[in-house]
Structure formats: structure tokens, C-alpha cells
Simulated scan of single mutants.
Amino acid sequence: MIRHLVLFKLNDGVSRDEPRVAAGVEAFRALGSAIPELTVWECAWNITDRPIAYDFAINSAVEDTDALKRYIEHPDHQAAAALWREFATWVIADYEF
């Protein structure tokens, strides 16, 4: 199994309640049921307010590197990521468990 973690930081001046941010969140929430390779899918806003904290997180899992590649290349994932590129930056970690 591979864990795929993503942490998002909203760009300066961008707030959670903006319509484009809400659209990005909904696009990610929909991926859990849209992409069959995902065996685990969680995404949510961070509930803490610390200077080093990121704003939004995805915690997901897939069976193997081939499934991870299919997930990353899936059109729904690409479309959701494109939305987030407009208002956030992110870091990822993929590891076997």
C-alpha cells in the first residue's frame, strides 16, 4: 500500500470562504467516489491555527505505484488540482506502509 499525503497552504490574501476555494474543496471531496484506485480518501480543513500549519489536507491510499500513477493522471484529479493551483501551494509525501 502507498499512502499519499498532501498539505495545502492558501496563498496570501485568499480565504476559505471564497467561491473558488469552495469549488476546489468540493472537487477534491468528490474524488473519493470518482477514482476507483483510491482505497482510502480523506480531505478536510485544518482545525488548528498555528504559524507553521497548512490549511487543508488530503490523506489517501492506493494499492501500488501503478495505482498511484493512475490516480495522479485521472482527469478528475487533474481538474481538481488545476483549481487549487489558482489559489494555493502544496507539498506531498508518498510512502509505502
Rank of each mutant, 00 (worst) to 15 (best):
D66T: 13
A23W: 10
P19D: 11
Y95G: 00
I58S: 04
R85S: 12
A34L: 11
E42N: 15
L5I: 15
L38A: 10
N46M: 07
L5K: 02
D12C: 05
D17G: 12
W84A: 06
A79Q: 08
D94G: 02
D55G: 08
I72Y: 09
A53Y: 09
L83W: 03
L83A: 03
A88E: 04
V91D: 04
A34Y: 00
R29F: 00
T48W: 14
D12T: 14
I52F: 01
L38T: 07
A61Y: 00
S33G: 13
F56Q: 07
D66I: 10
R85N: 12
A30L: 08
V6K: 10
L7T: 13
V14Y: 06
R20K: 14
E96G: 03
V21K: 11
E37N: 08
I52N: 01
F8I: 14
A23V: 11
S33M: 02
D49T: 15
K69F: 08
A82R: 13
I52M: 01
G24W: 10
A81F: 04
K9N: 08
L5F: 10
P75L: 09
W84I: 02
G32R: 07
C43W: 01
F28S: 02
R29D: 02
F87M: 10
W84P: 00
W45L: 10
W45P: 06
A82I: 06
A34H: 02
A57S: 11
A44L: 06
W41R: 03
G24S: 09
Y54F: 13
A27I: 05
P19C: 01
R16I: 11
P51C: 07
A34T: 04
L5P: 01
A67W: 09
K9S: 12
A93D: 00
E37D: 14
E96W: 06
A22D: 01
D49A: 14
A30E: 12
P19E: 11
I2F: 14
P75N: 07
K9Q: 13
P75E: 13
V25P: 03
I35W: 01
P75A: 11
L5M: 13
A93H: 00
H77V: 03
R16F: 09
I2K: 15
A22M: 05
W84D: 00
E26V: 01
D12K: 15
L10T: 10
D55Q: 11
E73A: 13
A30C: 07
V21G: 07
H74G: 01
T39W: 01
D17L: 05
K9G: 01
N59W: 14
P75W: 08
I52E: 03
Y71M: 04
E96A: 11
N11Y: 09
I52W: 02
R3N: 08
I47F: 08
V62Y: 08
Q78I: 12
V62M: 08
A67T: 11
L83S: 03
W90K: 06
T39R: 15
A80F: 03
F87T: 09
P36Y: 00
A67N: 09
V21R: 11
D12Y: 07
L7S: 13
I35M: 05
D64H: 11
A44V: 05
D64A: 06
L38C: 06
R70F: 03
